[in-house]
Design a protein around this nucleic acid. Structure first.
Lengths: 213, 213, 213, 213
DNA sequence: GATGAATGAGGGTTCATTCAT
DNA sequence: TATGAATGAACCCTCATTCAT
């Protein structure tokens, strides 16, 4: 979301476009803050503008309305993610290793960034934004699930795992991650959740550590 | 929807109180519909009243404001649940059997009822209603988790399971259920999810079916 | 536009509806003032509400939006007029007499009332409100012109007038009235126009007074 | 629409001034289109600029604000008209001939040009622009009426007409023209008006064709 | 208790105007 | 001189809340 304010060695031509892009980024960042804190309906564009350091009208130079701002925010943040996942899943390593990489990726690229907030927004506002849910399914979720499925089939072929439960329901692989996102927003002040440990415990269960002989 | 203004010659003295209670229930039911469909901020009390078949002002005879209506709705629906869970968990049966009963309970009492909508509301609106999250944690979640933990400790003592992953993170037991709730609201029209099969696959993984020898 | 505030001898039932109708009238009257003074686009509903002595939201209890308020205003004021004209035109008297009655009607019922302001609004805002122009044509103008045409045909049959100019263009009969409406709004402070004298002079010309032998 | 930023080696020194004047004209023409289509308040300078092929800021290099643009538009278009009328009225010919020339002038120079739109704008927006009405009265209307009055007095002196109706109310001469302007904007799609025939019928009435002997 | 008309604060959106480039 | 991104005041409309009936 950060953008260099100055492009070294650019002729005079790009300065304006650059500043415009920087403002757009600032608006998106502010919008994420406000939408996350209050939800779509209750967030005020006044506050978004103030937080972004622009006038209210400026928002409308970049986004046609509040809803477009919201949807482009989701797309901007989630769009670039899948390529990374597909790359990770394509590597030819033992399942446990790759699964750990996927989990690591999830922890690093989602839980460790603003993307967790975006996922929360998709969960909380998705029912009211069918297009958004559709975009997320088509562009992110279905591809991510396909990548994971491919990974698992590979593992089955090599005899690394026997059951097909995960192949049929790859959601089970990241279900704890989703729960962690929700938990952290709601209950962390009562009982903090060590997400990394949670995910590790999950992998231990999936791969049969500490099970009766 | 129309209601007689005067009850003449009521035999039982409680007829008025009964009618009042019925109205209250109607309002709560209508509120659940509207809050689920639109979210707290976007739901309109006008619509709640219309759906409940009462006048807008009547809502204020039963609830002090929109937020109180919302919170009492959550409490009313979720409150009675825990006792059932605690009873289920107290039974002294093999772990796999009890776990299946817990999952069944979840499917039957939550996914099969309006409670799934209430859970979705807790997830989506909880961040804006700290008291609500706190209530849910104290009255529902912490007790449910404690019950499950007791169950698991028992199983470890009897040598039924070895690892302590589930004891440390009992959330892992119902994580797929949470994901199912979210999935059904967002993505069912693209890819329906067989929740019962999902939960069964999850149990298979937890209890090591179809794993390499 | 005036409405009795109290209906004598009405049971308690009508009091509320009556007050509501009175408010509606007050809003319409205030709207006419504001739309006339500023034009549709520049008129502010805030000012309409203040002038009507109601809150802004009250306007929306009676009219779905600013445009509906505007259109209903026009219809309410112009609607009842035509019947009167048609009655006047149906009388069987010498043409000059009836024409004078028509002119009198115009002066009394339009120039002497708020209807002149409504006509001005139709003229000024009509181009932006096709439905309004259509309503005015269908419900008022075409019927008024037909009535006048009937009158003139009758006169021709009786040999009272020879040329068919007025039959073909009955607009010519009230053209000076329209000009008077426009003039009074724009130029009266520079050169007041005696409308009654203008119309009388117009009739003199039409009916050939003071013309060379 | 694009315009070269620099004129290199301008032969005639006035090239820049010429281009500036051309822009000014383009803005005025575009403004007439937009003001006519939407009215003063609803017309957007963005659209005026786009239609004129200039940037929004450029408008402010030629006109101090929206209102000045509007008023200068009216003055620019209406100003040069009166001289023509005064010339026409000064000719020493039989009244009927001159009157026909006046009507012809009206049809040709007003109804046949954008001036009809400007007159419509004066009618529709005049009440909100007192200075504009004053300008129009002083510079156009009063002089036009004076010219017509002179014409008519002359005719009376020569015994061409007897009554003084037209002298007292020269407005009656062009009243049908005004009505035609209004009619064409509002009702032409329901009932087209043959303006030339209307004016001719009007003259027939004024000059006593087809009247009973 | 029950009603629903009335209220008015609040917020999304538009657009005339400015000014750095 | 010309540009067009940026500004922010203004305004329509919504809806939670109140209260006379």
């Amino acid at each position: 979301m950060a953008v260099a304010r100055r492009t070294v060695g650019t002729g005079a031509g790009g300065a304006r476009a650059e500043k415009s892009a920087a403002r757009r980024e600032a608006i998106l960042a502010a919008a994420l803050d406000e939408f996350s804190a209050r939800g779509f309906a209750a967030a005020r564009l006044d506050d978004v503008a103030a937080r972004a350091g622009v006038a209210k009208g400026t928002i409308y130079l970049h986004f046609s309305d509040k809803e477009a701002l919201f949807q482009e925010l989701i797309r901007t943040v989630m769009g670039p993610l899948v390529a990374t996942l597909e790359t990770t899943a394509a590597v030819d390593l033992p399942l446990r290793v790759v699964a750990e990489q996927v989990v690591d990726l999830f922890v690093r690229e989602i839980l460790g960034t603003r993307r967790k907030d975006v996922i929360r927004l998709i969960i909380t506002e998705g029912p009211r934004f069918p297009q958004l849910a559709e975009f997320h399914y088509r562009e992110v979720l279905s591809r991510a699930l396909a990548a994971v499925r491919g990974l698992l089939r590979h593992a089955i072929d090599r005899g690394e795992i026997a059951g097909d439960a995960l192949v049929r329901f790859p959601q089970l692989l990241i279900a704890p991650g989703i729960v962690a996102i929700i938990w952290s927003g709601l209950f962390d002040r009562f009982e903090p959740l060590d997400v990394r440990a949670l995910m590790r415990a999950h992998l231990d269960i999936l791969f049969g550590e500490g099970r009766p002989p």
